[in-house]
Design a protein around this nucleic acid. Structure first.
Length: 264
DNA sequence: ATGGTGGCGCGGCCA
């Protein structure tokens, strides 16, 4: 079984021990991190290697920053959306055998109608072109990360209060819908899930204790890999720790049967 | 409640 997870850690420096404890407990094959908030020269490579993982990273001071931790050594092949120049480090794609793992920290968008919102939609347009091209070329994809989009109203604790806001606006959901139409599957919804499953809760107003959350951290797979997905769940455990990230990890397990998927 | 909390880095931005 191939186990892969995504986690927005909101500063890897602050959350390093949470990450190390979680790796030891869950032992995923791959962990995609977002908001590491570290320049590459400050990446805690040694601490990650001591935990038994290789690290690829595209870092940035203060904001953004992504990393892919893995038991096996992968081949990084993109740290930007091709053709979309961006000083913000939000993308890291790593090839493991026949599977391309694409780790994303989608822009938040701030407010509907703002410059940051326009940037988010442009970013998602460029992402779609890239993903569609990879799928058409027959690559197997696992696209995961903090999408900053809640796919449906059932992914939002109070859809009426959120209506029209960033994370749920129709244009953002349409952009996610285009990724799905291109040939990706939201693995979480392949399985029966309890009501009120979320992956992010605001630090403010005791939102986690009241489960006032949204599901914006996603694991998407191409249709072939999706058929081999055996589980997908959100682990709220780390959100309960002292000084937690505001996001919880999302974990998927794949059978990866067939010679295409010999991840050697 | 145009607030609230947290990270970065030391004032103000970002989420």
């Amino acid at each position: 079984m191939f186990k892969i997870a995504t986690w927005n850690v909101n500063s890897l420096r602050v959350r390093l021990e949470h990450v190390r404890q979680w790796l030891a407990a869950e032992q995923p094959d791959v962990l995609a991190l977002q908001e590491t908030k570290l320049p590459d020269e400050a990446f805690p490579r040694q601490a990650i290697e001591e935990a038994g993982y290789q690290a690829a990273f595209a870092g940035q001071r203060t904001y953004n920053g992504v990393a892919v931790l893995s038991r096996r050594t992968g081949t990084p092949f993109a740290d930007e959306i091709p053709g979309f120049r961006d000083p913000q480090r939000r993308v890291l794609a790593v090839r493991f055998g026949a599977v391309d793992v694409i780790n994303l920290y989608v822009p938040n968008g701030s407010q509907v109608g703002s410059d940051k919102y326009a940037y988010k939609l442009e970013w998602l347009r460029a992402l779609h072109a890239w993903i569609a091209e990879l799928l058409q070329s027959g690559r197997h994809l696992l696209v995961l990360g903090d999408f900053n989009i809640a796919p449906e109203d059932r992914d939002v604790h109070d859809p009426l209060a959120w209506e029209g806001q960033v994370l749920v606006s129709p244009a953002e959901r349409a952009a996610l819908g285009k990724l799905i139409e291109a040939g990706l599957v939201d693995c979480f919804r392949l399985f029966e899930q309890a009501d009120g499953c979320y992956s992010w809760w605001d630090y403010r107003a005791r939102a986690f204790r009241r489960n006032h959350g949204v599901r914006i951290d996603l694991l998407l797979a191409d249709r072939t890999l999706a058929k081999q997905c055996k589980t997908c769940r959100i682990d709220v455990g780390p959100r309960k720790l002292q000084q937690p990230s505001d996001h919880a990890p999302v974990i998927g397990e794949f059978a990866l049967q067939g010679t295409d998927f010999a991840l050697s």
